[in-house]
Write a protein that binds this DNA or RNA. Structure first.
Lengths: 209, 209
DNA sequence: AAGATATCTTTACGTCGTCCAGATATCGAT
DNA sequence: ATCGATATCTGGACGACGTAAAGATATCTT
């Protein structure tokens, strides 16, 4: 390799890592102009390549969006991990839920891409359940720490699923203007989120805080 | 010139009620081929008119989809009303929730159009809150019947919002394959839905059933 | 009956996702 | 180092899409 390729400036003949660049370009467009502006051609344009170039790295548009969504799930997952670590033992589940919803609220376009992809294939990404420290397992383990019975497998899964439903439902509802006055009344978005979560019985043994 | 077109009837010179026919055509496509196949041109084709004809009845594609979504909200609303009427007093809220989720599960494409429209304008349709027997008010009133304090306005709104979050979150999650084994384990979809709802504390004074 | 108006068609433009045929750069084996 | 194989990118093309403008045709008003 003769040309020193510094990250962003020098354009190699074969663009060092176009796959990466495309995902980044997609996220930039997503944040700047929203999901409706996210076309394959726009992504290629933003990355400075021809409209057909992405096809050497992704089977089709959906596969590109999958890569963007995957990054979203990873960011969400690390956010949940951090929130759990920073919280008092009895508040951990609550903190994870708040972190989940806050991610959705701060990255609405990305969150939508994530769930649009999931709805299209009628399945959440496998990584959310499979590995030991997936987001799903994180919630489930926290349930156990809060007093849920690890032996009651089905009930534990139901509780975890319920928590996920609550977080996702709240994440989407919080994006609708109808709830603005409630947010104002309670003094901000996070207090509103906490208040709604308090109404959803996610805590196996008593409420947090 | 009288030519018979796609659906069932001879076409008048000026197509009696094209607006209605377009919404019906859209719903037919939606059910048969899913949301991705729902293009303005396809709807016009299905209704047997030219691609530009819909523009005399709708400002653009989004407005057509709004009309489809509106019909969805109405169907959902009457389903909730019926479910409430048919249930024992203490089970009414639960019954409404189940009716909500079942509608979403039985009409996944329509449900998606409804929420896609809402997400686009970042607001649920006004009809869901405004009039006295809107779906929102129905849930809220049921909360009161179950023992919630009508004077605690904010808390009542929060409880209603929480119920909506739970129902929507569950409706979407139930569409993902990840939960198939739980459904099987519990003996069907509705038992699964009931079991998850049982984990979400939506009942002001004690649990139903 | 006649003009005004509403409804529908035709044609056209720009954008999109995707494919294909070349061009160009990198890599593997000699 | 040379050279063919392979990976990567460009350019052009196709059909489908959303939409606008202008022309045709039916209904309404008077």
């Amino acid at each position: 390799m003769r040309e020193t390729q510094t990250a962003a400036e020098a354009r190699p003949y074969h663009h060092g890592d176009l796959r990466r660049a495309l995902v980044d370009a997609a996220r930039r467009i997503l944040e700047a102009e929203g999901p409706t502006a996210l076309s394959l051609r726009a992504v290629a344009r933003e990355a400075g390549v021809s409209p057909a170039a992405p096809y050497h790295h992704f089977k089709d548009k959906a596969e590109l969006l999958d890569a963007v969504a995957d990054e979203g799930w990873q960011i969400l997952s690390t956010g949940m991990t951090k929130a759990k670590a920073d919280a008092e033992p009895r508040s951990k589940l609550n903190a994870i839920g708040i972190a989940y919803v806050c991610f959705a609220r701060e990255n609405p376009a990305l969150y939508r891409v994530m769930y649009d992809a999931a709805r299209d294939k009628e399945a959440l990404p496998a990584q959310m359940q499979d590995n030991k420290d997936s987001a799903y397992c994180k919630v489930r383990d926290t349930m156990i720490e809060l007093g849920a019975d690890p032996a009651a497998a089905t009930d534990l899964e139901l509780a975890t699923t319920a928590a996920w439903c609550a977080a996702h439902g709240l994440a989407e509802m919080a994006g609708f203007k109808q709830f603005d006055h409630l947010k104002a009344e309670l003094g901000g978005e996070v207090p509103f989120l906490r208040a709604v979560l308090a109404h959803l019985g996610l805590f196996p043994h008593g409420k947090p805080d």
